[in-house]
């Protein structure tokens, strides 16, 4: 199924392509093609956002579908007061919170101290290249991050949002988000063993 490549608003503005907000307004006017374009830009990052947040594929499917259903049903009264991406991930994050509440699982939304990540493991096959080994290790370490730090990391790296936009989605101050970002980077670096590599 052909889809447009992921593209952020600032880029689309400079290349003269319609922005996400314009696409959304066009869809609200009945233009299905505009929605296909919009969906193509955001579907995979949103899918990975749920996977990296610890959802299995089945649960991620449900949540992704719910997010887009809300987008579709809200289209007729959509007003571009904020960036579409910000709105999209606000919906995603709200659904995640609901999901955790329903499952009666421990949801560390209010966690402040970073959990201690386990020491770098030597159990990865030596046949993998160093980059692949580190990437695989990073995937594992992401699962160990506290929820708030993980959200900041994913919204910045996966959704490509600025720290201000992340702060808006998470309803917190920019400085608090920056602090969580620094904690996440420190924890992940330690978990992966980036510092040790430098010393070697």
């Amino acid at each position: 199924m052909p889809f447009a490549q992921p593209q952020h608003d600032s880029i689309s503005a400079s290349t003269g392509q319609p922005s996400d907000e314009q696409l959304m307004l066009a869809y609200a006017g009945g233009d299905v093609q505009a929605f296909r374009h919009l969906y193509g830009q955001h579907k995979d990052p949103l899918w990975r956002f749920f996977l990296r947040r610890g959802m299995d594929a089945e649960c991620a499917e449900e949540l992704v579908q719910e997010v887009w259903q809300r987008v579709i049903t809200s289209a007729h009264h959509y007003q571009p007061f904020a960036r579409f991406t910000t709105w999209l991930y606000q919906i995603a994050r709200n659904l995640l919170a609901d999901q955790h509440r329903k499952a009666h699982r421990r949801f560390t939304l209010v966690g402040t101290e970073p959990d201690a990540l386990e020491e770098p493991s030597q159990a990865y096959p030596h046949s993998l290249t160093e980059q692949a080994r580190l990437a695989s290790r990073l995937k594992h370490c992401l699962g160990k991050l506290p929820a708030l730090q993980l959200d900041v990391f994913l919204l910045k790296e996966e959704a490509g949002l600025s720290m201000e936009q992340v702060a808006k989605i998470m309803s917190c101050g920019v400085e608090a988000c920056k602090s969580r970002w620094r904690y996440a980077v420190a924890s992940l670096s330690k978990c992966i063993g980036l510092g040790e590599q430098d010393h070697d």
Binding site: G30, F35, R36, Y39, W68, Q69, A75
Partner: peptide
């Protein structure tokens, strides 16, 4: 999701 969007567009 795209089928859902098409149905939604008809409603809009």
């Amino acid at each position: 999701i795209l089928a859902m969007a098409e149905r939604g567009a008809a409603v809009h």
